[in-house]
Design a protein around this nucleic acid. Structure first.
Lengths: 205, 205
DNA sequence: TAGATTGTTAATCGATTAACAATC
DNA sequence: TAGATTGTTAATCGATTAACAATC
């Protein structure tokens, strides 16, 4: 059993395949093909087949892929066939919207706490959550064994928050702050920033 | 004068460089180097130099890059040395947060309208905006000559909204709906979805 | 001058695509 | 069986890196 290394760029496409499959499930389709997925997603059929075949033989020649089966396999591969708890740091507009967002629960993620360091915000209610004091953040996260966090603070605080999160045992960070954060080996960061996306498109206008 | 074609992946890194330069400007630094940028961003110095050199000779041997100069050059290249109007479609949690977000204005983008098709939402106030009836969307966008839109509707409506936006003359779409949308050649789409980012990280946990 | 850093070339590395035997 | 589509190999394409002359 060799531990085959999967390129990160392939891993990054799996959630996209998963999203399409989820949609097809809702539509009640039983099977699909690399070609159909290709048309929906704008990714070549050869690449889709190659990506999927890195993890196993999920299709049938002549028929294609059973949607329910492939969907379940991808959930297992991405380890979202379980529930992941996560915390939100920063109770501003973005943090509040994230904490209230309903779309996580049925996709394997559950917001469990939201922190802020502003005395005016601590103790207030955001959806089902009471905003917690960031001063207790490290201990609280650690004692709950939480591994995933979202940073939704202003840019100036983001790096300090990231350092604390790492201390607390967090291993995956989704960063909403408009700033690159540096973390040690083994901690994963994904950056999400509407401005970056917009600026990338204006180049072509 | 050959119209050199710049790879999309290079264009995609320019906003990241710009963000770092903006930060250095705030810190009051006068010059930087490809190596310093490399350390901040986790992108190799050679690649940074190569990317920048596609657009001109912005640095000085032995010295590096003048931050203010390079910052301005990148703004010109990305065409954000001007103000772009944009519209938001969907006045739910995400649409509201986006419409209220303060960070666009000083980065070249200005939200000018927000649309929804829910009678309960039309006419209500979100930050400085009154929610407009989506029924008039195409005409309103067209007559204002707006080229950029953000889709923040539920997934089921996103494709139909995208079709309308294209009809209205929109040429760049930032899509918050958890679904791939298809658009004609020449229209640019960027997708932003926290779930996709999270799912990509759990693979490594 | 000595040291530093760019812009650029050539070499390497990795990702995508085309093609097709296998087979449902 | 005939038609369709997978999984996989080899070929192509493109992106990244290493190295260094040029020069500030």
């Amino acid at each position: 059993m060799e531990p085959k290394i999967i390129p990160d760029i392939v891993v990054g496409r799996l959630p996209i395949y998963l999203r399409a499959l989820q949609r097809m499930l809702q539509e009640g389709k039983p099977v699909t093909s690399s070609q159909e997925l290709s048309e929906r997603l704008g990714i070549s059929a050869a690449q889709i087949r190659k990506d999927l075949s890195q993890f196993g033989e999920f299709g049938k020649q002549g028929t294609g892929y059973n949607i329910e089966f492939l969907h379940e396999k991808l959930r297992q591969i991405l380890k979202i066939d379980r529930m992941w708890d996560l915390v939100v740091v920063g109770a501003g507009d973005i943090g509040s919207a994230v904490a209230r967002y309903q779309g996580f629960e049925d996709r394997g993620f559950r917001v469990t706490m939201i922190f802020d360091n502003d005395p005016k915000k601590i103790g207030t209610q955001i959806g089902p959550f009471t905003v917690l004091d960031a001063a207790n953040m490290v201990d609280t996260i650690r004692s709950n064994g939480i591994q995933i966090a979202m940073i939704a603070t202003p840019a100036v605080q983001a790096q300090a928050v990231a350092d604390e999160l790492v201390k607390a045992g967090i291993r995956a960070i989704l960063n909403y702050a408009p700033l690159n954060i540096n973390v040690p080996e083994g901690v994963h960061v994904q950056h999400t920033d509407p401005l970056t996306h917009l600026q990338r498109m204006t180049y072509y206008l």
